[in-house]
Amino acid sequence: MRYAFLLDMGKCIGCRGCAMACKNFYNLEPEMVWRQVYPLAEAIYPHSGRAFLSLSCNHCEHPVCVTACPTASYTQRADGIVVHNMETCIGCQNCVRSCPYGAPRYSATLGKVQKCGMCWERLDAGLLPSCVLGCVTGALTIINLDDYVAPGIVQYPAGYPVMKKISPSTRFILPKEPVMYGVKP
């Protein structure tokens, strides 16, 4: 069993419902965001602000944060979820520097780093992660990488850094575009 987020960018409407559902469940500080929704640049999707990458933590196969953290505050569960231990964190932010995907976030008020833990507390209780439950269109789901097979799934969509050694677990379905009429360029 290896949990991973699956983001269907064809269904994602960039509403930030996933991000806000997370803030809601964990009562995050106003400026703190564990899940970011990045609009795709026009060079990638030709309509500005109409396709998105919703990313929290990629719970990578070889997580950089686990090796970077001097206090061993990151552990990877058998199901792939990378969990951050707030108690032992000393806020050195080496993980923030090292994670290519910007998953760990530093809180100046707490003096510690925080990050998405795939709602492991909810998964262990048989519930979906907050962001997955919060996704209004069903674009964001979780899959078991060990047995999930579907056509058109990619690991590295455009707009997302390729890090083969780290191997992020998140998977994507790419967005589509409509045929347009009446548009003067």
């Binding site: 064809g10 409407i13 396709a51 409509p178 045929v179 347009m180 009429y181 548009v183």
Partner: peptide, 21 residues
């Protein structure tokens, strides 16, 4: 089919988009 003078978020999900005056 989405018909809208603006290319809205919904328009991006359509099969066909019409931009009428």
């Amino acid at each position: 089919v989405v018909i809208d003078p603006l290319f809205t978020q919904t328009a991006a999900k359509a099969d066909v988009y019409w931009r009428p005056k």
